[in-house]
Simulated scan of single mutants.
Amino acid sequence: MTEERLADLETKITYQEDLIEELNKTVFQQQQMLERLEAMCETLARQIRSLADAGSEGKVSNERPPHY
């Protein structure tokens, strides 16, 4: 009986080790994706600031459109 229980425990440990390895890979991939998304957000924020700065240069905020 103890031999069977020992084999069951070894099997469970093996499955747990495989699961932990798989979870570790998933977390690593998610971290890489998060870093890429953060870099993209930063790039987009810089572009938006640049466009906003370029668009506001030389314009008066209350200027009437040309068709008035």
Rank of each mutant, 00 (worst) to 15 (best):
M1C: 12
E3L: 11
E4K: 12
E4L: 13
R5W: 08
R5L: 14
L6A: 12
A7W: 02
A7F: 02
A7Q: 03
A7I: 01
D8L: 12
D8A: 12
L9D: 02
E10N: 02
T11P: 01
T11A: 12
K12D: 05
I13C: 00
Y15F: 13
Y15I: 13
Y15V: 12
Y15D: 13
Y15P: 01
Y15C: 08
Q16I: 11
Q16S: 06
E17H: 05
D18S: 07
D18I: 04
D18T: 07
D18H: 06
L19S: 09
L19K: 10
I20R: 02
E21R: 14
E21G: 10
E22V: 03
L23T: 01
L23I: 02
L23V: 00
N24E: 10
T26Y: 09
T26F: 08
T26Q: 15
T26I: 12
V27D: 11
V27G: 03
F28C: 05
F28Q: 11
Q29S: 13
Q29I: 09
Q30N: 10
Q31T: 14
Q31V: 08
Q31I: 09
Q31K: 15
Q31C: 05
L34I: 07
L34P: 01
E35R: 08
E35K: 07
E35P: 03
L37P: 03
L37I: 09
E38C: 10
E38W: 04
E38Q: 15
E38K: 14
A39L: 02
M40S: 15
M40E: 15
M40I: 15
C41A: 15
E42D: 08
T43Q: 06
T43E: 12
L44F: 06
L44V: 06
L44K: 05
L44S: 03
L44T: 05
R46F: 05
Q47N: 01
I48K: 05
I48D: 06
I48L: 08
I48H: 03
R49E: 14
R49Q: 11
R49A: 11
S50G: 06
L51R: 06
L51F: 06
A52R: 13
A52C: 10
D53F: 11
D53N: 13
G55P: 01
G55S: 08
S56Y: 05
S56Q: 09
E57I: 08
E57C: 05
E57H: 08
G58A: 00
K59P: 01
K59S: 08
V60I: 12
V60F: 12
S61F: 15
N62V: 11
N62L: 13
R64C: 03
R64K: 11
P65D: 14
P65H: 14
P66S: 00
P66I: 01
P66E: 00
H67I: 04
H67R: 04
Y68I: 09
